[in-house]
Design a protein around this nucleic acid. Structure first.
Lengths: 133, 133
DNA sequence: CTGACTGCAAACGTTTTGCACGGTA
DNA sequence: TACCGTGCAAAACGTTTGCAGTCAG
């Protein structure tokens, strides 16, 4: 019984082999589209259904076990929930990477300017990554 | 021949009544989903087709005449292109508002930390708006 | 007058649903 | 053993396409 088994159960999700492999695929690959996740899953479960993938993605989202990242001009990717962070998207190679940025100054300014009570920030910075520029 | 007629033509788009009304609806309503835009358009063009809406949205996006805003836990909204800005999303009433924020400090930090050449930022701040909090 | 645009219907890709079977706890 | 999860097939949904008729320039 590894870590993810426990975490899944804590979210009232049974630790099936399919779910453990989904979790593993997300852990190993970082940011994946549904399509890519399906391909990865097929390597281990040759008859897994897309419906199973979708059902589990939705359950894991509800449980806040994973998160969806909406990207400009690209399909959404999914990642395991971790420390709050922003994303860098390379517009050439499409790679997504995490970056921890302190946004307190920005949110404070926004909060003051608009009288808004901010609880969450979604930031995607697009451009060219180290390899592509 | 009003402003939008000229702007549409500058983007090689004919200024049809449908397009002028779409533009007007975006101008008057700020941030609208496809669904809402269709409803708004139906008031003026009772037999307009969703296909026309989609075709024009896509052409206007290509022409950078409008922009898509991807929101967390909500459908995308569309807006007329204007000065670079961020968005505030109220998680209670779902209203979206624009806010001009200086993000040079954040992008500089990200740029340095990850060796990334940043050309575009997409920021959505979620929380409670003035009325809802 | 001509090419671009519209509206309709059909096609398409993605996501969801219902159900019978199988597996976790 | 009881219930939850899986896989399959079908349905639902949002978006795109092809086409014939119409309109803007």
């Amino acid at each position: 019984m590894n870590d993810y088994t426990t975490i899944l159960r804590e979210h009232n999700l049974k630790a099936t082999p399919q779910r453990l492999e989904m979790t593993n695929a997300l852990f190993m690959n970082g940011h994946v589209t549904i399509e890519r996740l399906y391909e990865l899953m097929l390597k281990k479960f040759s008859s897994i259904s897309l419906a199973t993938i979708y059902k589990n993605i939705n359950l894991m989202l509800e449980a806040s076990f994973i998160e969806e990242v909406k990207l400009p001009n690209a399909k959404s990717v999914y990642e395991l929930t971790k420390e709050t962070h922003s994303h860098l998207l390379c517009s050439k190679c499409d790679k997504v990477q995490d970056i921890v940025l302190n946004l307190t100054d920005v949110t404070r300014r926004a909060s003051n300017a608009a009288n808004f009570n901010i609880s969450k920030t979604d930031l995607v910075l697009s451009g060219l990554c180290e390899n592509c520029s």
